[in-house]
Design a protein around this nucleic acid. Structure first.
Lengths: 340, 340
DNA sequence: GTGAAAGCGCTAACAA
DNA sequence: TTGTTAGCGCTTTCAC
């Protein structure tokens, strides 16, 4: 049993316990430089026996290298972001880099705070959601002198690199699909979030394309807070009540779309005969629904993977520090709530 | 526009730019000690103008204090854990502490790795899910010399403090409820995860209580991977096909429960008349379902809040470093899938 | 293959 | 109120 020392152990403790100089102990513990098998063994034994945990703070300060990647996202409650994180983690697992997550709750001030906080740990790179940042945040990112990858969106001016989809195009594509299918009286439901720029861009792309075809949104409804599934249900009820001649509902996310779908089916409304439905995101959840909701894949895992690859490559010095723009292609899943 | 310096700025830069000693600059930037308003102003101006971001690595090393709390959870995809995180974040927001999340994927080896990694940053405390850890992990936690709070579960021997519910009791309570309602032919569906000890304990509490009433699980089914909603649907279909005389289905989580519910309703089966249903977790999602699924609240936010409070109090030296055990009481939400 | 010395950028403790 | 000195625990560099 290891001795119950309260003060955290230092290299020196291992050095003394093994009779090897601190420097050599350090080398063994980092697998750096040539060390004879004998001393290596002595050191490893001692370290293990004592339960030594190296102090990264000191290591980072001395080496001027911190193998952390700051990942800044708006929320963890959305499922969309955990999926991006999965892609990032998977990719970084093959490197010495480690992701550290910060959450902004879609608030620019909080983004600023979180960013400042993370940069003060001198990470090797930053992956941050969105292209819209406050003056201060942009300045910090630019000054940081480390690779920065803005993700999820490509509609705008990246600071450095950028991996995502065009949400304007996503909105446009869905609108085209709906127009092609012959729907005319279209209702929209979304979140009451002026700061969710991606949702806003999708909406813009959507309405503009409809407008070009001479169609205007016939009704719309926004929500905030609460269970998205329940909100989708409620909003749908309200909307088809208020505007009974709607023949299509476009939801800004899958969860409210699922709520709407469940409600319509319960009411015995023919989907997609009487009313067509589409949403956005392509979350796994949808697989279990009674009918497959038309949606659009936002390439979340791919975004995470690509972003992490960019950081890793830059960190390894493989890529000249140049901005790279990766514009992924969101694909429509027609499902069976969109008549053909 | 700030000058485009590539080397990160140091205190010294601010000191030179403001004509104030490094030490006083440090004081201003940390709001520590008395500094005249004049110098304070000078320093703040200079820091802002240069875009100085303090180096926490150096600060932490010098002060021997790191205001980080390591939070170690099995997964981010489960919604349960983001909710715990929310409670933790909220609570720590009022302090100088910051949560840092690590994910284990329910793998003990990964837990060990993540723990080692996090401890090497010398955090001020650890919040870790579960009471079951490898020898090495337990040793690290014990040796760390910082407050450790094990969360989600109280059925076992905590290393230090512990906040959670008794999953055995949760299983027992649900079994009692079902027995009281007069159900006799009970099917169980859960995850194929020998390492999810909490699910295991719930199952044990459940079956034992049934056994005491002379009831045995009539059928069971386990899944892994994929969309939980879809799996719930599939498993339910398979099970009521295989064992048509079942009058109750108990699901180990709400998502598969929801899938089962949707399936049964679609098939036109009377719930809870012909078949009763219950699940576990009390996730918000359930609010939007056609029928309210009976479930049990696992007090997730509360657990996060309480755990963070313990760490914060210990960190502030308010509480003698003694193990505290908080046994929360999970409450049954009967919903309307359990006949009375 | 191994060790000694000199910092990394900041803060504690003390002095002025 | 302000400044000086001496590290924090490690790694870099260079000598052996």
């Amino acid at each position: 049993m290891p001795s119950p020392i309260k003060r955290p152990l230092t290299l020196r403790d291992v050095s003394e316990a093994s009779g090897v100089s601190e420097m050599t102990v350090s080398r063994v513990l980092r697998n750096k430089g040539d060390v004879s098998t004998a001393t290596r063994q002595k050191v490893q034994d001692a370290a293990k026996r004592l339960g030594y945990v190296p102090n990264k703070i000191a290591g980072a300060l001395a080496s001027q290298r911190v193998n952390l990647v700051a990942v800044i996202i708006p929320s963890l409650g959305n499922m969309v972001f955990p999926e991006v994180l999965t892609g990032i983690s998977e990719t970084l697992e093959d490197t010495e880099l480690q992701p550290v997550v910060g959450v902004t709750d879609y608030l620019p001030e909080k983004e600023e705070k979180v960013l400042f906080e993370m940069l003060s740990w001198r990470p090797s790179g930053v992956i941050i959601a969105g292209l819209e940042h406050s003056e201060a945040s942009s300045a910090m990112l630019r000054q940081a002198g480390i690779p920065v990858v803005e993700i999820m969106d490509v509609d705008g001016e990246p600071i450095d690199s950028c991996v995502g989809i065009s949400h304007r195009k996503a909105g446009r594509q869905m609108a085209e699909e709906i127009i092609d299918a012959g729907y005319k009286r279209i209702g929209f439901m979304g979140t009451k979030m002026p700061l969710d720029h991606r949702a806003r861009k999708r909406f813009e792309g959507f309405t503009r394309t409809l407008a070009k075809a001479g169609i205007e949104i016939a009704d719309q409804e926004f929500y905030s807070g609460g269970s998205a599934l329940a909100k989708g249900r409620e909003m749908t009820a309200k909307m088809i009540d208020r505007t009974p001649d709607l023949d299509f509902l476009y939801f800004s996310n899958d969860m409210i779309g699922a709520g709407g779908l469940l409600y319509l089916l319960e009411r015995g409304i023919d989907v997609p005969g009487q009313i067509g439905l589409a949403a956005f995101n392509g979350v796994e959840l949808l697989d279990g629904l009674p009918r497959k909701l038309a949606t659009m894949d936002a390439c979340r895992r791919e975004i995470g993977i690509k972003a992490a690859q960019i950081i890793a490559a830059r960190n390894a010095g493989e890529i000249p520090p140049e901005g790279e723009i990766v514009n992924l292609d969101p694909k429509i899943t027609p499902g069976d709530t969109l008549r053909r």
